[in-house]
Design a protein around this nucleic acid. Structure first.
Length: 562
RNA sequence: GGGCGUGUGGCCUAGUCUGGAUAUGGCGACAGCCUCCUAAGCUGUAGCUCAGGGGUUCAAAUCCCCUCACGCCCGCCA
């Protein structure tokens, strides 16, 4: 099994290469507007190498090229290629019926990729802003899996360090009655109150700083009691965080604890390796790495290690276990990310990570901070999304049981949260507003889910099985071919999304696919279409499978009723 | 002050890396479409010259320089 558009693109590249004898990098195939064709070759970039004007090159290629899978025409300096519609339709339907909800998947690559995402400090519940991280990471993980990678999703648990020391101090010294009332019956909501109160006290009383410091030192020096106390608190909050994420359809394959790199001595080794580099120097006994004009400190003057050192140890550990690495980091870590890459390069470590940075999310124009307690938690946001979904369902349906309404609301709520976060390019800032985030019309999760639900209105009433062999695909109408063509794009989109680590492309595709189906649905009756019924059912079924694949890739939920 | 990033119709957004053929789509607005597989849908109209200025090029939203606005970073915190 292979995919018609992938094959066609490959054929074009091979043929152009054969005809003009240039290296493959010079052949830039782009996707033109729909009416021009499936692919286009602008000949401008070949002009310098071939020492001819673009139009003559186009003419030259047009005269020599031979394609089995489609045709082409010359338009000035462009060549436009259009695949054979019948072949495209047949192969796309065949692909969908064979692969079903895995449509779009590519053969295994024998490559391991480790995707680190979230890695939020376990000091309180996840807020919507932070949730951008797991949603980007998990979506990329799903995409890499689909194109054949062996994927490991990893949470790096910052179970030591200052923030955990503050939480632990709070747990040791504060009583329940000192705290704000419990917002939600969940362990992360419980413990964050200790963290917030302790942070607040620390701001008012600098004397507490020494107590925090001594907790950190005790931990690093291997004080068992302190160590276990920190770990216990971090594990408790972590379990609250992961429960929230599971609700968002996100899970991890492994957890790696920051403390482990201190315990096993690897941080010390890293510090020794770093100290031998020409990029490092010491200032009053503290080791730092020169990053352009910045000094990135990796140890304190008392010799205790700092987060950058531990993160290098972690990345070396990761590099030994995977062929490719991806880190999802907030924009506040840009500098740190540069340091990690530069330091790993200097240490001759391979692979170094690809880092996806995302900008922060504000809410109704306000910044969110765990320390200050100014945030909307992921749980709250999802509750509201579900509630809103419920209202919308009840506006339209009065024939569903409360249980069914609840199920659909949950599916729509989860999907809306994920979709609204992933549809925007990571590096762009997002300002969440309830009315926009929970707008269920147009470019939204329910729009996409609804297109899928519509297929079931049809498929459940049609009981016959589907056989590719009995179909007459010669006389398909424009809108039918257009839908199949859009379905056929899926593998191309998956590849491009992974290549650029740009998951928003996948979201955009999901919307376009759904929109194309909605037009088909309007124009072509299926069940009453007599002589075209079988063919149209096959198209609906193909769309249904491809949409299942797309929804799964975005971590969204499918629903047969809405 | 320095570094990084962002700035596309009233609002949100694609395209920017890899310069090219009429700048993508949504929300909102206005005008239409349910005796017919779920109207959370579909169709049409109006609206942007791509923050501003300069430059490179046959060609710039896309590359370079300057300016403005906003965000993030500039800790022996993480």
């Amino acid at each position: 099994m292979s995919y018609p558009l992938l094959e066609f693109k490959k054929e074009i590249i091979d043929e152009v290469k054969r005809v003009v004898e240039v290296s493959e990098e010079l052949i830039e195939i782009e996707v033109p507007s729909e009416e021009r064709g499936d692919f286009a070759l602008p000949c401008y970039s070949l002009s310098p190498t071939l020492e001819k004007d673009p139009e003559s090159i186009a003419e030259f290629i047009a005269g020599k090229i031979e394609l089995n899978r489609g045709e082409f025409d010359q338009a000035g300096p462009y060549l436009n290629f259009k695949t054979d519609e019948h072949h495209l339709s047949r192969e796309t339907i065949r692909g969908c019926l064979e692969k079903k909800e895995d449509f779009g998947e590519l053969s295994p690559k024998e490559k391991k990729i480790m995707i680190e995402h979230t890695s939020a400090n376990p000091n309180g519940p996840l807020h919507v802003g932070r949730a951008r991280n797991p949603i980007i990471g998990d979506t990329l993980a799903r995409i890499y899996e689909k194109i054949g990678y062996d994927v490991e999703r990893q949470y790096y648990v910052n179970d030591i360090g200052r923030q955990m020391a503050i939480l632990t101090w709070g747990r040791q010294n504060l009583d329940e009655e000192d705290l704000t009332p419990l917002q939600r019956d969940k362990e992360d909501y419980d413990l964050v109150r200790y963290y917030q109160k302790a942070s607040q006290m620390l701001e008012e009383d600098e004397g507490l700083e020494t107590e925090i410091r001594s907790l950190i030192r005790a931990m690093e020096e291997g004080d068992d009691e302190v160590f276990h106390s920190l770990k216990k608190n971090s594990e408790t909050v972590l379990s609250g965080i992961t429960r929230s994420l599971e609700r968002l359809n996100i899970h991890f394959d492994s957890y790696q604890h920051e403390s482990s790199f201190i315990v096993d001595g690897s941080v010390q080794e890293v510090i020794e390796m770093l100290s031998k580099l020409k990029e490092t120097d010491k200032e009053e006994g503290a080791l730092f790495f020169n990053l352009d004009d910045d000094k990135i400190f990796v140890t304190r003057e008392d010799g205790t290690n700092l987060y950058p050192a531990r993160d290098i140890a972690y990345h070396i550990w990761k590099a030994e276990r995977a062929d490719e690495l991806i880190d999802i980091l907030g924009e506040d870590h840009k500098n740190h990310g540069e340091f990690i890459k530069n330091a790993l390069l200097s240490l001759d470590i391979d692979p170094i990570p690809e880092i996806v940075f995302y900008s922060f999310v504000s809410f109704e124009g306000e910044e969110m901070s765990t320390r200050k307690g100014t945030y909307v938690t992921l749980d709250e946001f999802m509750d509201t999304a579900e509630e809103k979904a419920r209202e919308e369902i009840l506006k339209r349906r009065d024939d569903l049981s409360e249980e069914v309404v609840g199920e659909i609301a949950e599916k729509v709520g989860i999907s809306a949260v994920r979709y609204n976060v992933i549809r925007v390019q990571p590096r762009k800032p997002i300002d969440f507003r309830w009315d926009e985030a929970l707008n269920f019309q147009g470019d939204s999760a329910p729009f996409i889910q609804y297109s899928y639900a519509r297929t079931h209105g049809i498929l459940e009433k049609a009981e016959e099985g589907l056989e590719l062999d009995g179909l007459n695909l010669e006389g398909l109408e424009d809108g039918e071919v257009r839908l199949l063509r859009k379905i056929a794009e899926l593998p191309l989109v998956l590849l491009k999304t992974a290549e650029n680590n740009a998951p928003h492309l996948m979201a955009r595709y999901a919307y376009e696919l759904a929109a194309e189906f909605n037009q088909f649905y309007r124009d072509y009756p299926v069940l009453d279409s007599d002589e075209k019924r079988k063919e149209r059912l096959a198209i609906v079924k193909s769309f249904s499978y491809s949409m299942e694949s797309v929804l799964d890739t975005l971590g969204m939920k499918k629903t047969k009723k809405m």
